[in-house]
Write a protein that binds this DNA or RNA. Structure first.
Length: 611
RNA sequence: GCCAGAGUAGCUCAGGGGUAGAGCAACGCUCUCGUAAAGCGUAGGUCGUGGGUUCGACUCCCACCUCUGGCUCCA
């Protein structure tokens, strides 16, 4: 469970984004059966690495070294700094140890014995861990060769079960002892380990694939966006190509929102301190808000959130139960301070646009509304090419606001909606924010990585703080329910995920350039212009290359830009008003009548097909 | 913010205490070409910023900024 001293709604700028590189990759799938065995291998590998490190750096204090997804790590307090170059030597030492065919021997010992052992060895972290073991639990040691560790196990029987060619040390990182910021920082070495070299190769290949698809790399190669140190890190500049994609996303988003009964709002980017005082943000969320600016002797803050603004609009009128539910959405750009070390491409930024909405409704409308939002969300994900989705339901925490009755109803409506949609889900008991329960959706991308995107959150706090009311059918003023939701989350972050999901080869409807026109020689430039004009006329995004490069070079250039359709035009095409089509997949279809091609592209755009 | 690594031309990268190099891109000229790179030439960098050491710093040292991998955080 996360302990968050938090406030507020609409969350996720970051969440589970960065740092997942070596995370959920290739989870599940075919390795399930061997899961336990792999875990043993990885954990044992961690011990072997610890032995190697202690050998190489006498005086090293060891902390913890578990198996993780895809591998293992071990945290050390080292007498000197270790760099990437040292990993080679550590690897060689590990291979030696593995070849030594040492058994992993388990020994149950008394606490006193263990404490003496580790204190004699100066292993203070182990003593701390030892003290944390519950009284009624056995204390066990595992030894192989010269290394003994306080460990619950299990391990493989013998180092010969480890394969010296199926592991690789990957990286070095700092990590706080026991994950606490106030504790000393240890050196963590990460490795990956598998049961055979082939699996290792596959995994390393996957890492390569991840690197190739990195949105920061593709963002540069495809000229999509940039950031600028001089102008402020963590702020995104959308280039023409990126903007084309963003516009396509937003146009679709707006259309769908109107279709689903939403109204769209625009609200200011700054608000007077009164607003943030009332909402509670200044109190709870101050450290992530930017310093105020002075306007006529008043403090104004740039917005970290859109909700208070929407509430202001709500309060411009007396609201009747007849006009509920209100569904108000906005692509609202917010600014939040993120620590410098947390910034990461498009995934973790300091300014981002939420596809935010607030649903204000009566108690008996809640259930339908939630179901509608969930359906809406799933449709949206489908349109963007994501179909593997998992839900997380977070329920009431100890400390919270709002009547228990409302929590109960709200939580039930969330769960009901998830079940109605047949989504796989986990319950995070007590994991809700203090102001309400929520559903988060995680989507799986083409590489099997999970990203938390959608969130649907009840809010029992702001309606009170702003004293929101509606007049019910009995003539009495009542408090409405308020639900925050963001489907894509943040446009920036979503864009990053989208880039990686498609590896930059976007579906036609999103491609910045949908068709490239390439005359085989300058003599056909005129026809190329005609074709281009005909496509533009139909709203198709076209790029014509009339330069004096050879046709082959032009194809190569557009290929690198991952343009879905390339039209090769020469004499034959000109004569019969046709185009020869080359897909970015390499597939060719020659001599398609121009009008047929236009029709085909329009169909692909409408159906949101990949290509 | 913390630990470690990195910052050299628009991009990808090499180099190294004596004052900077390649490929691609750009620009110019020649070639006028049928499905992933035609040929030749030209131009382009106070080597992240600021200090220090040195006869001399892009190179060594210190500080700062940014980026990368993690840790922490992510309402």
């Amino acid at each position: 469970m996360k302990e968050t001293a938090d406030y507020c709604l609409l969350f996720p700028n970051g969440v589970s984004g960065a740092g997942q590189l070596v995370g959920p990759v290739s989870n599940g799938e075919k390795f399930m059966a061997d899961d336990e065995k792999l875990k043993k291998i990885r954990h044992s590998m961690a011990h072997v690495m610890a032995e190697a490190v202690v050998q190489k750096y006498p005086g090293t204090k060891v902390a913890i070294g578990p198996a993780i997804d895809n591998g293992f790590y071990y945290d050390f307090d080292l007498p000197e700094t270790v760099t990437l170059d040292d990993l080679e030597d550590i690897t060689l030492r590990m291979k030696e140890i593995i070849k030594g065919n040492y058994p992993f021997q388990k020994r149950l010992v008394s606490r006193e014995e263990a404490e003496k052992l580790f204190s004699d060895a100066g292993q203070e972290y182990k003593i701390e861990l030892l003290k944390a073991i519950p009284e009624d639990e056995d204390v066990s040691l595992y030894s192989q060769d010269t290394f003994t560790d306080l460990c619950r196990g299990p391990h493989v029987e013998n180092t010969k079960e480890l394969n010296a060619e199926s592991f690789k040390l990957l990286s070095i990182a700092g990590a706080y002892w026991r994950g606490k910021e106030t504790n000393p920082m240890l050196t963590r070495i990460y490795g990956t380990a598998w049961s055979n070299p082939k699996e290792l190769r596959l995994y390393l290949k996957k890492l390569e694939e991840i690197e190739k698809r990195d949105h920061r790399k593709l963002g540069k190669e495809l000229d999509l966006y940039s950031t600028h140190e001089e102008a402020g890190p963590g702020l995104i500049y959308w280039h023409p190509n990126g903007s084309r994609i963003r516009l396509a996303i937003e146009d679709y988003w707006r259309k769908e929102h109107y279709k689903n009964g939403y109204e769209l709002l625009y609200t200011p980017h700054i608000g007077r301190s009164w607003l943030w005082q009332t909402s509670g943000h200044l109190g709870f969320y101050n450290e992530s808000m930017y310093s105020p600016m002075d306007v006529d002797d008043n403090d104004y803050y740039i917005k970290p959130m859109n909700c208070p603004f929407h509430i202001m609009i709500y309060k411009t009128d007396i609201r009747s139960y007849r006009e509920l539910p209100l569904r108000w959405a906005e692509l609202g750009t917010v600014y939040r301070y993120e620590k410098s070390g947390a910034l990461h491409g498009l995934l973790r930024v300091r300014g981002f646009t939420q596809d935010d909405a607030h649903i204000i409704c009566t108690p008996d409308q809640v259930e339908d509304e939630i179901l509608e939002v969930l359906k809406f969300s799933l449709n949206m994900w489908k349109a963007f090419g994501f179909s593997d989705i998992k839900a997380y339901l977070s329920t009431r925490p100890e400390k919270c606001v709002g009547e228990p009755e409302r929590w109960k109803q709200a939580t039930a409506s969330l769960q009901k909606a998830i079940e109605a949609e047949g989504l796989e889900f986990d319950i995070d008991e007590g994991g809700g924010a203090f102001y309400g329960p929520k559903i988060d959706l995680k989507i799986k991308d083409a590489l099997g990585r999970e990203w938390q995107m959608t969130t649907i959150q009840f809010d029992f706090n702001l309606p009170d703080r702003f004293d929101m009311t509606f007049v019910d059918s009995d003539g009495k003023e009542k408090r409405p329910y308020m639900v925050h939701r963001a489907l894509l989350g943040s446009i920036e972050r979503f864009f990053g995920v989208l880039i990686e999901h498609y590896g930059g080869a976007f579906p036609v409807w999103l491609s910045p350039v949908q068709a490239a026109v390439i005359p085989v020689a300058a003599a056909f430039n005129e026809y190329a212009n005609e074709v281009s004009a005909a496509l533009k006329e139909k709203g198709i995004r076209v790029s014509v290359d009339l330069g004096d490069n050879r046709m082959n070079a032009k194809i190569r250039n557009f290929q690198k830009k991952k343009v879905p359709y390339m039209l090769i035009l020469g004499e034959k095409e000109q004569e019969s008003e046709a185009v020869s089509l080359r897909l970015r997949t390499g597939k060719q279809t020659n001599m398609i009548p121009l009008q047929d091609f236009i029709k085909m592209v329009q169909e692909k755009i409408n159906s949101k097909e990949l290509i």
